[in-house]
């Protein structure tokens, strides 16, 4: 898989590359409008991550160019502009998703995975992690081919953990992923704990491995090792 990351802040680009490269993806970066424009026209990418404010031009027109040239490429916009109208504009131009800064890298990764799954495996869409199998369309989780009934939150949580395997997920990142914008409406971090506890209990009860490990003081990590 080949990605293009268009972001003018080099230190942010660096961390994004480090985080998603763990998945063995090839990530190219462009830090200006012109560089990005050239790359779009020279190469094919599976996915592009596009910042809207760039030196030399806007990400909006890059999204348009890319959509015209390569309809197969997944596009995710990352921007500091947090308004619904911008979001609508982005999606109308053909972006698959829209993420506002400051985002959690794990969240970006989850969105990337989701776009890739939708674009690449439109039919038989499933994720396998050890004995766990997730059927995306049906939102079903199987452990050793036995269906495990999960609540909606538990399902979201498990999918988020599995897409970010072997990475430490902070409680904030999990809370924001599950409760979205309303995560700050209550002491959601405490509830991350109870959701994880329930999920672990269900997986263990079904004979699964204890794959969601607590990382002291920070959060959790899904690991099959």
């Amino acid at each position: 898989m080949k990605f293009l990351l268009i972001e003018d802040e080099s230190s942010l680009a660096e961390e994004i590359v480090n985080f998603i490269c763990a998945e063995n993806y090839l990530v190219e970066t462009a830090s200006t409008y012109n560089a990005a424009y050239q790359k779009i026209h020279l190469y094919e990418y599976d996915l592009a991550i596009i910042d809207i404010t760039l030196p030399g031009g806007t990400g909006w027109s890059l999204v348009e160019h890319l959509r015209l040239r390569s309809p197969e490429t997944g596009i995710i916009i990352i921007t500091a502009k947090n308004s619904v109208s911008d979001k609508i504009q982005g999606l109308q131009l053909g972006a698959d998703d829209y993420l506002t800064k400051p985002f959690h890298l794990a969240e970006l990764n989850a969105r990337i995975q989701s776009i890739l799954r939708r674009r690449k495996f439109s039919g038989d869409n499933k994720i396998v992690a050890g004995p766990i199998r997730i059927v995306i369309e049906k939102r079903e989780v199987y452990l050793h081919d036995v269906l495990i009934p999960l609540t909606r939150k538990e399902y979201d949580l498990l999918l988020y953990c599995i897409t970010n395997q072997e990475r430490v997920l902070s409680k904030e990142s999990i809370a924001e992923h599950i409760w979205g914008d309303h995560a700050d409406a209550f002491d959601s971090l405490d509830f991350v704990y109870s959701q994880i506890k329930n999920l672990r209990k269900k997986l263990l009860a079904a004979g699964g491995p204890d794959c969601i490990k607590a990382v002291y003081g920070i959060g959790y990590k899904f690991s099959l090792v």
Binding site: F103, S173, I218
Partner: peptide, 29 residues
Amino acid sequence: SHELQTPLAIIRAKLEALYQRTDLDESII
């Protein structure tokens, strides 16, 4: 909103990179 959210995004990304390290002690966490 734009110019300040971007550094925030950098800080958060750096922080998450730090979280991935295994040599963190309690006080650093």
